[in-house]
Design a binder for these strands. Structure first.
Length: 359
DNA sequence: GAAACGTGGAC
DNA sequence: TGTCCAAGTTT
C-alpha cells in the first residue's frame, strides 16, 4: 500500500462486499428499518431521516413511533395542523425541521400525489431535504446508487484515507471518497452499513478497530492516528444570554403561555413569556416588567434556570405574577396539563422551576 | 462560507 | 461541571 491512497486504490479492492458482509452479520433492528428482503415505506424512511438529522437514534425512537402511530401516511401528516405537529415534536430540538417536514408533506401530497419522488434531484427540491437526506432516501427507500455523506461517513473516510485536512474544509474531499466507494449493488444496505460502521465501530472516541471490517487497509489505524481523525477547526466560544421569565397565573392557577414567532429560535413553539434575551448581566426585575404581557403582584423566585443552546448559553430568573384574565394571543393552561402543551425543553425547565418554588 | 438552529448522553 | 458530539439544512 502506498503512503498516500485514493479511493481508486480501494474501489476495485472489494470494500463494499466486505462491509456488506459485516452489515449482514451485525444489522441493527430499528423501527424505521424493514426486515431483510422486505420493502421499506419511503414515508417512514423520510420521517426517520428528518428526525435523525443531528439527533441520536436513542432520542428519535419514541418520537418516530409516536409520529407513525398518529400519522401513518404522508397524507395524514399533511392533513394535520402544523401546531399539532410542533406539539408532537416538542423536546426533539431543531424545530425548523418540524416546520419544514410539515411543508414537505403538504408538497408531496399536492405535487406528487402523496408518493415520494425517487430521485435525488426531485427529493432535493423539497423543504428540509438537503444533499445528505436526498441521497439517503434515494438509496434506502428506492435502492438507488446514491452516495450518502453524513458525519459518520465523513469520519470513516477521513480515517481509511488518513485525511488530515480539518473539517469543514475537508468536506468536498471526503464526499469524493465516499462517492467513489459507493457500489451499484445493494446501495441502500451499503449506505446504512457505512453509517452503522461509524455509529458502532468507527466511533469518534475509542474506535473499535479490532472489530472493523476495514481495519486492514485503514491508513489512520496503520499510522496510529485513527482517534485523532477527523481533525476539526476550533469552534467559537459560546456567549451567555440572560432574561427574566414571566410566570403568570390566574385566580384558578392556570399558567399563561403564548406561541413564539414562526421563525428563529424555537420558532412556532409555545413559550413562557420572557424579557428580551440579552448578553448583559441579569436584568433587574423592575427594569423589565414593562416587557411582561400584563400581570401584577410580582415576586422574584429564588434560583436560576440554565439551558445550553447550540450557539449560546441561556440563564433566566423567574418572576411570578398574577394575571386578571385572558391576554390576546396567549392561552391559560392548568398546571397539571403543562406536559401536553408542547413546551420545548428550555421552556419546560422554566415551568418545572416555577412549579417547584410555588408549591 | 459562516452563522443560526436543540437536546440528551457519554466521558 | 465541562466538553464533545449525533443519520444536516437553511439563510
Amino acid at each position: 500500500m502506498p503512503d498516500t491512497a485514493t479511493s481508486a486504490d480501494f474501489a476495485p479492492a472489494g470494500f463494499a462486499p466486505d462491509l456488506l458482509a459485516w452489515y449482514d452479520r451485525h444489522r441493527r433492528v430499528l423501527p424505521w428499518r424493514a426486515p431483510p428482503g422486505q420493502k421499506v415505506d419511503p414515508y417512514r424512511v423520510w420521517l426517520s431521516e428528518i428526525m435523525l438529522q443531528q439527533t441520536t437514534v436513542a432520542a428519535v425512537k419514541d418520537y418516530f413511533l409516536d409520529f407513525t402511530g398518529r400519522w401513518p401516511t404522508v397524507a395524514d401528516l399533511a392533513a394535520a395542523p402544523v401546531e399539532e405537529v410542533l406539539r408532537a415534536w416538542a423536546g426533539l430540538g431543531y424545530y425548523a425541521r418540524a416546520r419544514n417536514m410539515h411543508r414537505c408533506a403538504v408538497l408531496v401530497v399536492e405535487r406528487h400525489g402523496g408518493v415520494f419522488p425517487s430521485t435525488e434531484a426531485e427529493l432535493r427540491q423539497l423543504p428540509g431535504i438537503g444533499d445528505y437526506t436526498a441521497a439517503a432516501i434515494a438509496a434506502i427507500a428506492f435502492d438507488r446508487p446514491a452516495a450518502v455523506t453524513d458525519g459518520n461517513v465523513e469520519r470513516v473516510m477521513a480515517r481509511i484515507f488518513a485525511v488530515e485536512t480539518p473539517l469543514p474544509p475537508a468536506k468536498p474531499i471526503l464526499k469524493t471518497h465516499a462517492a467513489a466507494l459507493t457500489p451499484r449493488r445493494r446501495p441502500g444496505d451499503y449506505a446504512q452499513a457505512v453509517m452503522d460502521l461509524g455509529a458502532t465501530i468507527c466511533t469518534p472516541r475509542s474506535p473499535k478497530c479490532i472489530l472493523c471490517p476495514w481495519s486492514t487497509p485503514c491508513l489512520a489505524r496503520k499510522r496510529g492516528i485513527a482517534e485523532d481523525l477527523p481533525a476539526k477547526l476550533a469552534k467559537a466560544p459560546k456567549p451567555t444570554r440572560r432574561a427574566v421569565a414571566f410566570w403568570l397565573t390566574d385566580a384558578q392557577g392556570n399558567v399563561l403561555l403564548r406561541r413564539r414567532p414562526p421563525k428563529g429560535m424555537l420558532g412556532g413553539m409555545m413559550e413562557v413569556p420572557s424579557s428580551a434575551w440579552v448578553e448583559q448581566p441579569m436584568p433587574d426585575l423592575a427594569a423589565v416588567l414593562a416587557e411582561a404581557p400584563g400581570g401584577s403582584g410580582w415576586r422574584l423566585l429564588p434560583g436560576l434556570v440554565r439551558h445550553g443552546f447550540t450557539h449560546f448559553d441561556f440563564e433566566l430568573t423567574v418572576a411570578a405574577g398574577r394575571i386578571a384574565g385572558p391576554v390576546d394571543g396567549a392561552v391559560l393552561v392548568p398546571p397539571d396539563r403543562l406536559g401536553e402543551a408542547g413546551l420545548p425543553t428550555a421552556m419546560w425547565k422554566i415551568a418545572r422551576h416555577a412549579l417547584r418554588h410555588l408549591e
